[in-house]
Design a protein around this nucleic acid. Structure first.
Length: 304
DNA sequence: AACCAGGGAGCGT
DNA sequence: ACGCTCCATGGT
């Protein structure tokens, strides 16, 4: 308690990370991260255990935090401000009007580089949930089981996403009380396997894409889609391409003229069409289709 | 193969 | 006010 009070009075640290073409709103609400809250003076969240408040300025992203040992690389890494977005977009197929249009619709949408455990756990919770509900579950988990972090004076208490070790000691009932339903045993098992070192989340970062995916698929509650989310959003594999119902719809509509497509054929198309930054292309298509006003899309059935 | 598990936002009626 | 749909994993 004493420690918390002392830290509350810690000096505010500020920096502007120079970056152009960075749409913070779109990036933090585009279904890749679930722990950010829009406050009066910016987006508040927790990155590597540090509370941080972000806002967009003329020359870049302004960041404020209260404890800041050793520079700002933890934040540069999370936000991926060093990524040259124009160079990423230049690799997209030039003759793909749909993709180019999606890019134009949201210049500055970025991919974050999240912490593997938080990302994995969040996406285990995401299955058959919508973004709003995932946010609610994550918030409950943080409040109940996460460690408190120091915040700026006047800001309501904030908690870090609970570590695997913190969750591993809980019961399934504890987790179900956070409204995650049938996902509770999956999250609990994942926490215990990570804590025990049975699956090494750090080691996955050094693997080839296929081997990394294989490791992630060992977790119960992790299928192809969720594995691809973690590969893209936490490990930064640039060709990981999560296909959920929205992305499937947009792909079938745009590239297959609403004809039925088998999952294998879709997979082959993605691999050859979108290039070395396919994951970024996926993010633009996803965001575009989610924000387009009442765009009519077919609802394709899965091919046999 | 079709359905369920659990949940709440966000529709349309 | 009420019912219906959404959503993506694993088990029956």
């Amino acid at each position: 308690m004493t420690v918390a009070l002392i830290e509350m009075k810690a000096r505010l640290h500020e920096i502007t990370l120079p970056v152009r073409d960075y749409d913070l709103d779109a990036t933090l609400t585009s279904g890749q991260a679930f722990g950010w809250e829009r406050g009066a003076s910016g987006w508040m969240g927790v990155v590597t255990g540090r509370w941080v408040e972000l806002s967009s300025g003329l020359t870049g992203i302004q960041a404020r935090t209260v404890v800041n040992p050793g520079g700002w690389n933890w934040l540069r890494d999370f936000l991926q401000t060093e990524v040259r977005l124009a160079e990423v977009i230049r690799t997209f197929p030039a003759d793909d009007e749909h993709l180019q249009q999606a890019v134009q619709a949201c210049r500055g949408l970025r991919l974050l580089r999240q912490e593997p455990w938080e990302c994995l756990a969040s996406f285990i919770l995401s299955s058959t949930k919508q973004i709003v509900q995932i946010r609610q579950i994550v918030q409950l988990l943080r409040e109940r089981f996460g460690s408190p972090v120091s915040v700026r004076e006047g800001v309501a208490p904030v908690f870090a996403f609970p570590t695997a070790a913190q969750l591993a000691g809980l019961t399934e009932a504890d987790l179900r009380a956070c409204k995650m339903g049938f996902r509770a045993p999956y999250l609990l098992a994942a926490a215990r396997r990570v804590k025990a070192g049975e699956i090494d989340l750090v080691a996955i970062g050094g693997m080839e894409l296929a081997a990394a995916r294989e490791q992630l698929l060992r977790f119960e509650g992790v299928g192809e889609k969720i594995a691809d989310c973690v590969l893209l959003f936490a490990y930064g594999f640039p060709t990981a391409f999560p296909v959920d119902v929205w992305v499937r719809r947009v792909l079938v509509d745009f590239y297959f003229r609403k004809r039925q497509v088998s999952p294998e054929r879709l997979r082959r198309f993605i691999e050859k069409h979108f290039g070395p930054h396919a994951g970024y292309a996926q993010q633009y298509l996803f965001h575009h289709i989610r924000t387009m006003p009442a765009k009519k899309l077919s609802i394709p059935k899965a091919a046999p």
